[in-house]
Design a protein around this nucleic acid. Structure first.
Lengths: 141, 141
DNA sequence: TTGGTTTGGTTCGATGTCGAACCGTAAGGC
DNA sequence: GCCTTACGGTTCGACATCGAACCAAACCAA
């Protein structure tokens, strides 16, 4: 029964994908960034300035984790905090020009990752795999 | 195209599986153990005393990580080190009686995890999913 | 035999992540 | 208008994990 390997395989896929992301980031001059930092920037590209709380749920991390992730992005000059005029508790996280300069790279990395992951697998098998994974993820939820 | 979600889904499966393992370990009185600790004990159950190097490759972690994982297991009384008569560099890691007392729990957790993950998915779909994941993992390797 | 290389393990520092406790501000009930 | 509750963020301590540097024992070649 090879079905015992699901969890291990899922972990392996995640780890290798992360390794590829980190390597590509470094290769393109964005050294020191982890996949979570990339995920944050992608959200900021798509949606503009966002409160940390929203970012946390978007990338699936806890809010205190976001505090340190954002601190690093800020220190490296990728994001800036601006106050929310509507709610003085929230600080809106906005991408800087430097972050915008990397936008294309992030999009390319995303495409490259998917291309490499899927390889020559036909579309119907891809869909089936995603559906199956969704099922397993739901079952574990 | 929902196929963009593969990586995220794989991560989710891994995280939820890990959460379930940790919760079950705690529920059964083995609090403070992470999935990696469980993976080590499972290997020791199956194969008896093993050098750290071998354990590292078996559970897919680096050797310096093993050092700290074993240190914890040793501090909690689950494993003991014994010298290897054939090679004085290696210290063989052996499960203690306390570890053996948890063996059934680990096996139950393993079964429970798989049962919950697969749910009602029919066997052929399970096989297809594993095959697909293997393909993706290989593509990323 | 001896000196260089390989190999098993540890140490050190860094990092992403979390839970728990905490602080200030907003919102809602009375 | 107060007081309680909810909520956004930070701080603190803990932990698994890694890379790099290191040590000591084993292996090997000349």
């Amino acid at each position: 029964m090879s079905t015992e390997r699901v969890i291990h395989l899922a972990s392996q896929v995640r780890e290798r994908a992360n390794a590829l992301i980190v390597a590509e980031l470094e290769r393109r001059g964005a050294a020191g960034l982890a996949p979570s930092h990339g995920a944050i920037l992608v959200q900021l590209y798509r949606q503009g300035p966002l409160p940390m709380n929203r970012l946390a749920s978007l990338i699936g991390r806890k809010k205190n984790t976001l505090t340190s992730l954002i601190a690093k992005l800020e220190a490296l000059g990728y994001v800036a905090r601006q106050p929310d005029p509507k709610d003085s508790r929230v600080s809106l996280i906005a991408p800087t020009d430097q972050a915008r300069r990397f936008r294309r790279d992030f999009e390319e990395i995303s495409r490259l990752l998917l291309d490499k992951a899927w390889g020559a697998m036909p579309p119907d098998q891809r869909e089936a795999l995603v559906r199956g994974l969704e099922q397993v993820a739901n079952n574990l939820g």
